[in-house]
Design a protein around this nucleic acid. Structure first.
Length: 455
RNA sequence: UCCUCUGUAGCUCAGCGGUAGAGCGGGUGGCUGUUAACCACUAGGUCGUUGGUUCGAAUCCAACCGGAGGAGCCA
């Protein structure tokens, strides 16, 4: 008899008859004549309620000692439930205890703090919330591939170990070899020069866009910054599309289209988990996602954004000045208070942006854009890249970058240069946005943050 | 790196200068188709660590350690 996923059993129109399910006990309620055992196998949020009569063979050995956390295999008839709360339940004919769990199993049926659950990251996927989060994480990863593959984008695996630093995108982790306590540096360097864990696959991605036209990367990224916030992790996943023959306008179009596509997929493909998030995590989540899916994003230039902020009469902690970075509070005001919807800000001053962004005709701004969403702030950052050799060289000189080291990157402008553009989307920030979960540590299976690399 | 908050039973918390508490979870027993089941009994604690103030410290003070939130930086 093959195992039926609980999701399949619960979705049945008519009773599937006698089936075998396996899973972990979430809770058990005994009375004199029988026990109710709720079993979850992770295939969906809901548990299957098992009714086990006291007359069942093996009842005392297999059913009575069950605790939350134990694993079981159950065979029984799927029947309409007499009680409220579920359509189907199983009338057990055979219960096998696979792996017992002691009474000290740390997950209870209620009342855990997120901090405690983080300390048991190996067990937290067995909770309702984390089961839901990680089913959604899987589904969103699938939807991202689907979005790009449907549009003819080629998936490129950019290197995880790199010698280029994508221009100060953040502090980096050094890659070294060791022998005992000794670290091999200098002449002993494994790659013959200092190497690091990647902070972005963008520069490598550009080379492939300048051959395959539309590409995307989707992989882990590392930042060694000592930031202690709910939105930063040392290891996170990033999606970075890069499109040849594309300008900033097209870049913003695809970025906004992608966000709406992913939110739409969340609404249709993750309905049960979404309902759970809306009920227990973030009351207005579903309505907000529907709004984002159905309404066009606002678009303003950096200059207009500064104007709006200055005219707002709002008392910001940091003053708003043309030429300075927008602060978190400014981004939040724009998307949460002023527009009340996702907002794309573009054409930033060149002075606050990296060397690879394309200089606009005004000479002072670059073709950069950020997509801001309520509750998160910056979800996407992107730009049209500088495709003109002389401009790029000038930018590199201004940023003190060695042309030798980035020779391969400059080559793209020497041979068949084309306009191109791309952006980066933080996968975990997307997940925070679609689940309402407030901390990045709770949407990544085993989070790495300064001082923490457990499990 | 800076600022703020926080650390009491396995978990969630109350107690805030005078004998260490509750709910949940665990154990034992009971029980009406229960669903955060219910009822009764029961075990469980160097109050983060070190030092100080005091007749007396979980409580006040200092340092350190851990956790969280915010800022900066960014995705």
């Amino acid at each position: 008899m093959t195992r039926s996923p609980i999701a399949t059993v619960l979705q049945s129109e008519n009773s599937p008859g006698k089936v075998l399910v396996s899973g972990w006990v979430r809770t058990k309620r005994d009375s004199k004549a029988f026990s109710f055992v709720e079993v979850n196998d992770g295939s969906c949020l809901s548990n299957l309620q098992i009714v086990a009569d006291a007359t069942l063979p093996g009842y005392e050995e297999a059913v009575l000692p069950l605790h939350t956390g134990a694993s079981v295999e159950v065979i029984g008839e799927i029947v309409e439930s007499q009680g409220k709360g579920q359509k189907w339940e199983m009338q057990a004919s055979e219960v096998r205890l696979l792996g017992a769990a002691d009474g000290d199993f740390p997950l209870q049926k209620k009342g855990h703090s997120m901090e405690f659950l983080r300390s048991i990251a190996h067990l937290r996927p067995r909770s309702n919330l984390f089961g839901a989060v990680f089913r959604v994480r899987s589904r969103m990863a699938y939807a991202i591939h689907q979005f790009f593959q449907d549009r003819g984008f080629v998936y490129v695996h950019t290197p995880i170990i790199t010698a280029s630093d994508c221009e100060g995108a953040g502090e980096m982790f050094r890659v070294v070899t060791t022998e005992g306590d000794e670290i091999h540096l200098g002449d002993e360097e494994f790659f013959g020069k200092p190497s690091y864990l990647t902070v972005s696959g963008q520069l490598e991605g550009e080379t492939f866009a300048c051959a395959l036209s539309n590409i995307y990367t989707f992989g882990p990224t590392f930042r060694a910054e000592n930031s202690h916030t709910s939105r930063h992790a040392s290891e996170f996943w990033m999606i970075e599309p890069e499109m040849a023959f594309c300008d900033l306008e097209g870049d913003m179009d695809i970025a906004e289209e992608m966000v709406q596509y992913l939110v739409g997929d969340m609404l249709t493909s993750c309905a049960e988990d979404l309902a759970f998030f809306s009920r227990f995590v973030d009351k207005g989540l579903k309505e907000r996602l529907e709004f984002v899916r159905d309404r066009p994003f606002e678009r303003v230039t950096y200059e207009e954004a500064v104007q709006i902020l200055n005219d707002s009469g709002e008392a910001f902690e940091y003053s708003v000045e043309y030429g300075a970075n927008l602060q978190s509070e400014h981004e939040r005001y724009l998307t949460e208070t002023h527009f009340r919807c996702p907002t794309t800000v573009y054409n930033y001053p060149a002075s606050i942006k990296p060397f690879y962004m394309r200089r606009n005709d005004d000479g002072k701004t670059v073709a950069a854009m950020d997509v801001l969403v309520p509750g998160i702030g910056e979800l996407i950052g992107g730009s049209q890249r500088e495709e003109r050799l002389d401009f790029l060289r000038k930018n590199m000189a201004e940023h003190d970058l060695s042309e030798e080291e980035y020779d391969w990157y400059v080559d793209l402008r020497r041979y068949g240069s084309v306009k191109h553009a791309g952006f980066g989307l933080g996968f975990e920030r997307l997940l925070m946005f679609v689940t309402g979960v407030a901390n990045i540590r709770d949407v990544i299976p085993f989070p790495r943050t300064p001082g923490v690399a457990d499990f």
